[in-house]
Design a protein around this nucleic acid. Structure first.
Length: 692
RNA sequence: GGCGGGUUAGCUCAGUUGGUUAGAGCAGAGGAAUCAUAAUCCUUUUGUCCGGGGUUCAAAUCCCUGACCCGCUACCA
C-alpha cells in the first residue's frame, strides 16, 4: 500500500489536553502502535507520532478557573495522556505538544511563508459579537437585535482577521482526491468528502485577535493575533519531524498514514491538504478515518449495574487482552461494539485455549521428555513439511492483510498457524513418544522442535498486538527479545532460532476467565448475542410540552422558516418552524402549541432551534398546528398507557420512530390518545393525517 | 428531502470478473484423546443469501421495485 517500501511514518491526532483519555483515544493510539510494530517487524524504518493539542479558549478558561497559568495547566493535563499510553504499552517515537517551542517556531514560519506567498489576506469587517456564543453574527442574522442562538445581547465590534485562500484550491482538491483513490480511506469516506466539496468552499479564517483569545501562537506578521487552533494543531505532523531523518537518511515527511476518527475527517481532508498545497508541500499518503466503539444498551447496563467501563477492562483482564480485543474485533473503518462479555469470550477462546494452552503443552512435554532442551532438525516428514509451509503461509497472509489494513483478518491468519500446531500435536501424540524412553527421544525432539518453531513464528506475528505477553511467550521458548523486535535474528523465518537455551516451564500466559453461568439458565444465543433486551416503547422517550408562542419572526436566512420565541412554563425557547408558507405570523402569535421539548438542538441556517412544533401535515401540504385543549404553557403531554422516560437530546430519527396521527380529531400515538392534564390534544384534520 | 452504503448460519463477518452440493471463526451437538489452562482433536446440525419481479443456459453476485438499517448532507425544525 505504502509508496515507500522501507519507511513508515504514522500519526494519531493530537488529543485536546482538557479531555480525559478514553476508549476513542486509546483505540486510535493502539491501532497506530500495532501498525508501527508490524511495519517494524517487516523490517521497515518507522516513526510513530502522537501528542497533545494545547492551545485555545477552553484551555485558557480551565486554567483561569484553576488559578494556574495555561502552561501549568497543560503540563499537568498533557501528562495524563502520556501516562495512559505508558500503561497501554504504546511505543511512540515522539510525543509532541503544541506548546513545544520548536512547534511554535515552526508554525510561525509556516504563517510567514503563507503570508509571503500571498496565500493569506486580511479582511476588516464590522459585526455583532456575542460574548456568550463567542462568535460573530451579521446584521441580517440577528433576531430582534439579539444573538439568534441564545437570544442574548450582542455588541458591535469592528474587527480585522486573516484568511487563508482555501477556496482557490477546491478544484485542485477534488481532482487530487479523484486521482488518488486510496488517499482517503475507507472509500465511502472519500465519497463523503467529495460530496462535501460539491458545495462552494469558503476561505478559512486563520487568526484570532488576542483581545479575545491570548493562549495561542502569535502570528509573525500581526503580533496582536494568534493562530486559529486547527491550523496550529495540524502542522504538528510536520513540526514534530522537521529536520529529522530515518536512519538511512531519507526524510520522514510525508506521513504514510494520518489516523483519525471520522469526526475530524473534513479538517484533515480539506484544511490540511489545501494548506499543504498552498505551500507546495507533499501530501500525506493516506488519511484513514476509523469508526467508533458503540455500547449497546448503555441504559440497561446502568440499571443492572454491569456498566462497561472500557478503560477499566485493561486493568481487569490485562493490557494485552484489551489490545487484542480492540484490534481483533473492529474492522478498520467500521463501527464496532464493545462489551465485557465479548472481550472475555475472545480472551478465553483465542488467547487462553489456543495461544496460551498451545505453549503450555509443549513446555510440559519438553520438560518431561527432553529436560526442556530442543535440537533443530530438518523437516523431513510429511506433517513437518506441512507445518513449516503453514508457518510461511501465515507470515505472508498476515503481513499482506496488515498492509491492506485488515487487521482483524490478519490476526485470524496468525491464529490459523497456532491452531495448526495443536492439530499437529494431536497427530503426532508426543506424549506417547515420551513414554517410549530413549527410543522415542529423537522423534519427540523433532515433534517439539517443529511445534516450537511454528509457535515462535506465530508469537512473533502476534507481538505487535500483544508486545508484553508475546515477549513473555518468546522468552519461554528461550528466545531473547531485542528492542521491540522479538529476536535479533529472523523472527519470521523457519529455523531462525537455534534453541541454544532451555525452554521455560510452568508458563500460564492467559489464565482462563471463568464465566459464571447460572444453573439452568443457559444463554439462548451465542455469548456474543445473549437475549436481546426488549426495546423501549419509542414514544416513552419523547417529551412533549405545551408552549405559548410569544413572538414570531422571519428567519434571517431562510425563506420558509419562522423563528419562534416560545414560553414554556417559565422558560424561554427559540424554535425554528417551517410554517411560513402555511400560516401568517398573526395566526401563530399568542397561540398555545405542542412542542417536542427534549429534541436535540439543531442549527438551521444559522439559528439554533431547540425543539419542534407539532403540526398535522394534511393533504396538499396543508399544515395545522395541533391544539392542546385548555392546557397552559409548561404542561406535559403524555400518551395514555405509555411509560414516560424522556431521553435527553432526542434525535429527529428517534422521534420519527413514534409516529403520531390524527383520529377523530384527536392526536394519537398508535391508538392511544395524547393528553395534557386538562384534556386531549386536538387537530382539525382528517383521520390518518400524520402529525410532526 | 438529496446523495451514498448495507441486509449472507444463533453471533461477528468472508464471498474474487454471474458458473457445480454458499464459506470462516465463535456458539450448539456427538465422539476421540489425556501432554496441556475442564484446555485439544475429529465429526456434525442450522441458511426461502431481506421480500417481490426481471435479464440469463446459469444470479448471493447484474437490472427494477418494496421493506428495514446506517453514513454524509440539507430552507428538515
Amino acid at each position: 500500500m505504502s509508496d515507500s517500501e522501507k519507511t513508515f511514518y504514522i500519526t494519531t491526532p493530537i488529543y485536546y489536553v482538557n479531555d480525559a483519555p478514553h476508549i476513542g483515544h486509546s483505540y486510535t493510539t493502539i491501532l497506530s502502535d500495532v501498525l508501527t510494530r508490524f511495519h517494524k517487524l517487516a523490517g521497515e524504518q518507522t516513526f510513530f507520532l502522537t501528542g497533545t493539542d494545547e492551545h485555545g479558549q477552553k484551555v485558557q478558561q480551565a486554567a483561569d478557573k484553576a488559578g494556574v497559568s495555561p502552561q501549568e495547566h497543560c503540563d499537568a493535563y498533557s501528562k495524563r495522556f502520556k501516562d495512559a499510553w505508558g500503561e497501554l504499552n504504546i511505543g511512540f517515537d515522539k510525543f509532541i505538544r503544541t506548546t513545544d517551542p520548536e512547534h511554535i517556531a515552526y508554525v510561525q514560519d509556516i504563517f510567514r511563508r503563507l503570508w509571503d506567498k500571498g496565500r493569506i489576506y486580511e479582511k476588516e469587517y464590522e459585526g455583532w459579537y456575542s460574548v456568550g456564543e463567542e462568535r460573530f453574527f451579521t446584521e441580517k442574522e440577528l433576531v430582534d437585535g439579539k444573538d439568534p442562538i441564545s437570544g442574548r445581547p450582542v455588541e458591535k465590534i469592528r474587527e480585522k482577521n486573516y484568511f487563508f485562500k482555501m477556496s482557490e484550491y477546491q478544484e485542485w482538491l477534488i481532482r487530487y482526491i479523484e486521482d488518488h483513490p486510496d488517499f482517503i480511506l475507507p472509500d465511502f469516506r472519500r465519497n463523503e468528502v467529495l460530496g462535501f466539496l460539491r458545495q462552494p468552499l469558503n476561505d478559512l479564517c486563520i487568526s484570532r485577535p488576542k483581545s479575545r483569545l491570548a493562549w495561542g501562537i502569535t502570528l509573525p506578521f500581526a503580533t496582536e493575533y494568534v493562530a486559529y487552533v486547527w491550523v496550529d494543531a495540524l502542522f504538528n505532523y510536520q513540526s514534530a519531524v522537521a529536520g529529522k531523518k530515518f536512519p538511512d537518511g531519507s526524510p520522514i515527511w510525508p506521513a504514510d498514514y494520518h489516523l483519525l476518527g471520522k469526526d475530524i475527517l473534513t479538517t484533515h481532508a480539506v484544511y490540511w491538504t489545501t494548506l499543504l498545497k498552498a505551500l507546495d508541500m507533499p501530501q500525506p499518503r493516506h488519511i484513514l478515518a476509523h469508526g467508533w466503539w458503540l455500547f449497546d444498551n448503555a441504559r440497561m447496563s446502568k440499571t443492572t449495574g454491569n456498566v462497561v467501563a472500557p478503560m477499566a477492562m485493561k486493568d481487569k483482564y490485562g493490557v494485552d487482552a484489551f489490545r487484542y480485543f480492540l484490534i481483533r474485533e473492529m474492522v478498520v473503518g467500521q463501527d464496532a461494539s464493545f462489551s465485557e462479555e465479548a472481550l472475555v469470550q475472545r480472551l478465553n477462546s483465542d488467547l487462553a485455549n489456543d495461544v496460551g494452552n498451545g505453549l503450555s503443552r509443549i513446555l510440559k512435554l519438553a520438560a518431561t521428555g527432553l529436560e526442556s532442551r530442543l535440537t533443530p532438525v530438518p523437516s523431513d516428514g510429511e506433517e513437518e513439511a506441512a507445518l513449516k509451509k503453514a508457518a510461511g503461509d501465515a507470515v505472508t497472509a498476515t503481513l499482506e492483510k496488515v498492509k491492506a489494513l485488515k487487521l482483524s483478518f490478519a490476526i485470524e491468519d496468525t491464529l490459523q498457524l497456532i491452531r495448526a500446531v495443536n492439530r499437529y500435536l494431536e497427530v503426532k501424540a508426543p506424549w506417547k513418544l515420551a513414554k517410549e524412553g530413549p527410543a522415542g527421544k529423537d522423534k519427540l525432539n523433532s515433534v517439539l522442535y517443529h511445534s516450537a518453531e511454528a509457535l515462535r513464528i506465530g508469537f512473533s506475528l502476534l507481538h505487535p498486538v500483544m508486545p508484553a505477553k508475546m515477549e513473555e511467550a518468546l522468552t519461554a521458548l528461550g528466545v531473547g527479545v531485542v528492542g521491540s523486535n522479538p529476536v535479533a535474528l529472523s523472527p519470521l523465518k523457519w529455523g531462525g532460532y537455534d534453541y541454544a537455551k532451555p525452554l521455560g516451564q510452568g508458563v500460564n500466559l492467559f489464565p482462563r476467565v471463568e464465566t459464571e453461568k447460572p444453573a439452568g439458565q443457559k444463554s439462548a444465543g451465542g455469548p456474543g448475542g445473549g437475549p436481546k433486551p426488549a426495546p423501549a416503547d419509542p414514544f416513552s422517550l419523547v417529551h412533549l410540552k405545551v408552549a405559548r408562542i410569544e413572538e414570531v419572526e422571519d428567519h434571517p436566512n431562510a425563506d420558509s422558516l419562522y423563528v419562534l420565541r416560545l414560553k414554556v412554563g417559565e422558560e424561554d425557547r427559540t424554535v425554528c418552524a417551517g410554517l411560513k408558507k402555511h400560516l401568517a405570523k398573526e395566526e401563530l402569535r399568542g397561540r398555545n402549541v405542542v412542542m417536542v421539548y427534549n429534541l436535540k438542538p439543531a442549527n438551521l441556517r444559522g439559528v439554533e432551534s431547540k425543539g419542534m412544533i407539532l403540526a398535522a401535515e394534511g393533504e396538499g401540504g396543508k399544515v395545522i398546528p395541533v391544539m392542546p385543549e385548555g392546557a397552559v404553557s409548561g404542561d406535559d403531554i403524555k400518551a395514555a398507557d405509555t411509560p414516560f422516560e424522556p431521553k435527553a437530546d432526542l434525535t429527529l430519527k428517534e422521534f420519527d420512530k413514534a409516529p403520531l396521527t390524527v383520529q377523530a380529531g384527536i392526536v394519537r400515538y398508535r391508538d392511544r390518545q395524547l393528553n395534557s392534564p386538562k384534556g386531549p390534544v386536538r387537530a382539525q384534520a382528517p383521520d390518518g393525517t400524520a402529525v410532526r
